[in-house]
Write a protein that binds this DNA or RNA. Structure first.
Lengths: 221, 221
DNA sequence: TGCCATATTGAACGAACGGTCAATAGCGCG
DNA sequence: CGCGCTATTGACCGTTCGTTCAATATGGCA
């Protein structure tokens, strides 16, 4: 009755792909041994044969998802920005745009996160990934603090990093919930909150409505 | 065999309380008819008798959670703040502090959110709640835009509201994942990013940091 | 008191799930 | 060709779940 034999790594990948498709279509709860086997066109026993346990299959899927998700990368165009805060915000903008581009993957990400609360193995893996991601932001946050110590008095690099990453997470959640999100307007509003203060109008006592034609200073490059 | 009779509203509340406790302890997946019945000290049949279906019980639990969660409220102390942006940020701070104070409830919130992706009834209910919450922010966002049109050029009230609420969501996620979060430092850093520009240090002509020794942030991969 | 609507019970059912296992076919190798 | 290792199959098991239902006790009311 058995069919043709296939090399082990290929089989594992076929199974993970099937599990991934099921998770994208119906969430982590839609992953069952039987459905994975059917989608991968093999018997249910073979799935267990290669992964031993459903939990280990899910863990392998998580690993694969994390490794195939584009990692945070600071390109030369961002690195060229002189001002630290502007550089950080450019990175923040890049990340928000990237995450909002693949809402399905983010959705899966959050499902793993949620699952990690009750499953310690998943939780530990997610925690490691989160630490890694945050660590990538840290150098920039440190540069920002050094550039303007007065403004960020009493704020540590860890704190600023946490806030920055939280902002990104919020955007990711937003994109996950409402894929029709207009990311351009979203970014514009975020920029209004974050970046414009680098070129403040002289304090007139009441820094409210602008009087007269406001001269928009050229962006620092 | 049947035990003492109890009024219907009381029974429903007993059942919802039991379901809530189970969900807090072990997530939405930990809600089973049998366990709910056991925790509420009644038979499993009675749970079905009062709610008809497990799905309807979960929906009733969601409704109860939403209605017993403190709604967004703009207190007099916030309303007294003159500057619109400062007022918005004060509200933002209040919300971040509030949400980080009850991480368990937030966790449950997000689980419902996740479940709502695959269950349209839950999804619709969550969407309504989100709209309601966002609508409460909108007037403040409009005031901010009116106060400084130049700064938020091309940004609609909806966009600014979305960003603000996203920021809160990000903080909520943060608090959910790491309950040991130091909320005070988190708020300080957020304030540094958002509020300080209202009281800018006199422009020294060079808002850049490239004065002293330039710190090269480590390249991230 | 007797009666009836109904709140309550728990055994039972069918479906779905994760996992086991004896049987079997494919493949490399002597 | 024939042997042996192993990938592969699918029936099967035990468990858990949501739900059904006949039986029964309860409390209000005539």
């Amino acid at each position: 009755m058995p069919g043709t034999k296939v090399s082990e790594p290929l089989r594992r990948q076929q199974i993970i792909n099937a599990a991934f498709e099921l998770a994208i279509d119906g969430g982590l709860n839609a992953i069952t041994i039987r459905d994975v086997a059917q989608r991968a066109e093999m018997s249910s026993g073979l799935v267990i044969f290669h992964f031993g346990t459903k939990d280990q299959l899910v863990l392998a899927l998580l690993e694969w998802v994390l490794q195939t998700t584009t990692a945070l990368s600071v390109g030369p165009d961002i690195e060229a920005i002189g001002d630290p805060l502007e550089r950080l915000i450019a990175l923040l903008r890049q990340e928000m745009a990237r995450l909002s581009r693949e809402p399905q993957r983010i959705r899966l990400f959050f499902e793993f996160w949620s699952a990690g609360i009750w499953n310690s193995e998943i939780g530990n893996r997610m925690q490691r990934e989160l630490d890694r991601y945050r660590e990538a932001f840290r150098p920039m946050a440190e540069a920002v603090l050094l550039a303007d110590p007065a403004r960020f008095e009493g704020v540590s690099a860890a704190g600023l990093t946490a806030v920055t990453v939280s902002f990104i997470k919020g955007c990711a959640v937003q994109a996950m919930i409402e894929p029709q999100l207009d990311i351009r307007e979203f970014l514009a509003a975020a920029e209004g909150l974050l970046v414009k203060q680098l070129h403040p109008t002289p304090p007139t006592g009441r820094p409210s409505a602008s009087r007269g034609p406001r001269i928009l200073p050229a962006r620092v490059r």
